[in-house]
Amino acid sequence: MSAIKAENLTLAYGKGTFFEKTAVSDMSFAASKGEFVGIIGRTGSGKSTLVQLMNGLIKPDKGRVCINGTDIWEKPRKVNKIRFNVGAVFQYPEYQLFEETVYKDISFGPKNMGLCGDEIDKRVKSAAEFVGLSAEALDRSPFELSGGEKRRVAIAGIIAMDPDILILDEPTAGLDPHTRGTLLNQIKNYHNIRKNTVFFISHSMEDIALVSDKILVLNNGKKVMYDTVGSVFSRGAELEKIGLRVPQITRIMLKLRQKGIDINTNVFTTEQAFDEIVNYIERKKER
């Protein structure tokens, strides 16, 4: 059974007014436990709305979201419990911090779940470790931290709830390249250990290629593709049409191939490309 399944999701904003706009239309997809799904799409393609639909912050006009086979809106009064199962980190989450200390802020989620003190303590510490926050940082005020650290605190706040499904909406936007790389590794590492389902939204095709198993491509509120990284990025022309691209390194490989160099272009990260090129050179030497 799939961990999360969306069936014919449809939602329009500002119904019946001059400003009516369909944000998500007739979208269906499913992800099983342990999958890492990248979501890509142009600005305004419905990514953020989709996140809010997935954890029950907005009710779809049509269709439904099922977690482990049950519709999340089956009991509308209980929908807030769903959010312990589907943890969502929104864009620029650093602006949601409010507690006196980082420790207290991370424990906000677990506290709302009604966990006991020891369990909260354990979760806060392990979440902080996952995102690389030092023990010393836990006692500081979240408002004293740098932008990148705040971001980590916000992500730790969701990880501490230990959700089966984790949604990250542009977690690396606006960070410096170094912080970006580390954070990405930490997220991937967390996923490898925890083996939960992760949805990762990003505008960086390189980031997506690096961490995802599958990619969901959105355009104008509709699902355009939903397939493995390899198959999605092999349809470069189609991606280009909806304002997206294949990763930079893939473009380089394609160019090399055009120049008559016999290499595999099914390559999406720099590591893969490196291996492929080394492989090519060795093959050439043998000849």
Binding site: N80, F98, F108, N112
Partner: peptide, 30 residues
Amino acid sequence: ITNAQKARGADMDGGNIFKRVKAFIPVLIP
């Protein structure tokens, strides 16, 4: 911000008046 706090399990709609006011703090401070 309300959405973000709801995503962390904050219950904004239920409870008596004191609970509701208290639930609003995580929104007010940010």
